[in-house]
Amino acid sequence: MALKDVLILVVKISIVIGGMLGVVAYLTLMERKVVAYIQERLGPNRVGPWGLLQPIADGIKLFFKEDVIPAHVDKLLYIIAPAITMTMAVMPFVIIPFSKSFFLSDINVGILLLLAISGINTYGVLLAGISSNSKYSMIGGLRVASQLISYEVALSLAFVGVVLWNGSMSLVKITEAQHVVWNIIPQFIGFIVFFIAALAELNRIPFDLPEAEAELVAGYHTEYSSMKFALFYLGEYANLTAMSAIITTLYLGGWQGPWLPGFVWFAIKTFVVLFVFMWIRWTYPRFRFDQLISVGWKVLIPLALLNIALTAILRIYI
């Protein structure tokens, strides 16, 4: 690989990571604005015009807070946990095609990479829960572990439907295969399963049991403060962005669309999905934990299996 190629790759990676972190920072503002309008309030509007400088103010505030490490924590794991969460949240962008020619890498088992990342992602929250030396964190961590394991099954089964339908595990090829009809139409059951499982993977309402503030204070990140807390918070939004981008790529045709350039289409679709996630969060109440587990195992997994069978039959006869 020549030096020029390496430089181009480095620039590309910086664009993706920088852009992603910018989007993630402003997602916090978007979420607060969306909830404000849903609840007929104004939301943050003091810092900058329309509150646009609020994320920067929040960031500076968090940087200057005291970084408390509680007594008797397992220090190594306590410090590593937020780092795992944040890195694993950024990782999926390695293989997501943002437009016809702009993507960092196209590996032919891309979907497996996504599953592997979400597998490792579990450790961030699990380790945070275990190492914090706090009952709330511990219960939060345990809940996360069981929730992620249960819903990863449904998630991967939904992936299988997409892979069967498009005949490839590479996200670039899956996007290209959707130029006639988006996957959301032939894979509708799979899409519903994937969306619900994604909600659960992201620990968002109605599935945010791991950090249910009414019973667990803040779940696994109760004991974290300052920038370590911010890493969890940003990691959550980075996961949200990544999941929206994955849904866009797998089910909504990725960068494809008429007139506008591919990148714009990709951004529009991703933000629509993000908005739906926020809309759901501020509309629905929280499930009970047993309801959450039984929805995962008794409803989503059978539906996903049905979807695989139907997809296989459709593939043979169409």
């Binding site: 088992v109 450790y123 394991i149």
Partner: peptide, 20 residues
């Protein structure tokens, strides 16, 4: 990737669970 998904994503989480 299958190695990571099965062992890292599944089995070690189970082991950690048991330890906790």
């Amino acid at each position: 990737f299958v190695q990571i998904i099965v062992y890292a994503g599944g089995i070690i989480v189970m082991i950690a669970f048991v330890i906790i």
